[in-house]
Amino acid sequence: MLQPEGPAPSLDEAAAKLAEAQAILQSSTASLPLVCLGDAIDLGADAEGGVMKGHGTMMAGEAQLQATVCGLVERVNKLVSVRALKGRYTAQVGDVVVGRVTEVAQKRWKMDVNGKQDAALLLASVNLPGGVQRRRTNVDELNMRELYQENDLISAEVQQINQGDGAVALHTRSAKYGKLQGGQLVTVAPYLIKRLKQHFVALAAPLDVGIILGCNGYVWIGSKDLVDAGGRDEDEGMEAAGPSGQVDLQLRERMCRVANAVRALAALGLPVHPPAIVEVCNLSGLLRVEIKDMLGPEFLAQVAYREADRRQAEGDAQPMDH
């Protein structure tokens, strides 16, 4: 199915091929319990035992649940919920996120994390450069911009979610969190990012870049030392954490290749996780696809075929159990 050589097919052919590959991928979703907004949820035999309504559902009548969003029906014992496929990021405590500072407010930074409201990063929940203890003075609050300014990109963790209004509080109380510099941000739909054991990933050579997979769909692609086990150097502090000044051309190219791999996966609606990213990068290397051509229909079709093949192999080995 791989065609590294031979004459390049025309754009129409490539588009048709892509459509075909996507159709194959789609066929694997046919058996999923998807519901549309307003549909009554089929409760099956469990209806007699009583059900609990979870997210994305509401009661319609006495023993009938109705979906309030389009998505996938999930059940945990009696709890029935519908997970929306689209929509903004819903925070969970402990998530790694990448956010952008929108406002420097009283004792806090307001951050855009693609959520339903801006998240707050309190001055009390950041580590100061050099690990020094913060003195709670007015001067300190006035100097907040020296730490993070408007439009800075920051990696952080969700510390707390207010039960009442769903306000999200972040913290950067670890050496690995902080300002991001010298790389690029790729935004994808939040549902494409699964929760992993490790969201700071250093991709091995030849890619040799570091990525931060924010659970909110913001993916940071930067230098490897940002992500490496040691994290940010305590003495250097956060200011110098990113590669200061110039990023050399080869690193840039590697970063762009990874970034386009993420975009390609997102364009096809495939989950974005480190093995998939590496596979797409390897495939692009194998087919000698240039970075700029990685988002073209020809390459996307190849990626889609790859995924379809993988699922086929997986499906033969074990029946689908979504």
């Binding site: 046919a30 494409l192 699964k194």
Partner: peptide, 13 residues
């Protein structure tokens, strides 16, 4: 709606 929905791919749970 149903058509549009099936176009979205699902990450495993």
């Amino acid at each position: 709606l149903d058509k549009a929905q099936r176009r979205l791919e699902l990450p495993g749970t």
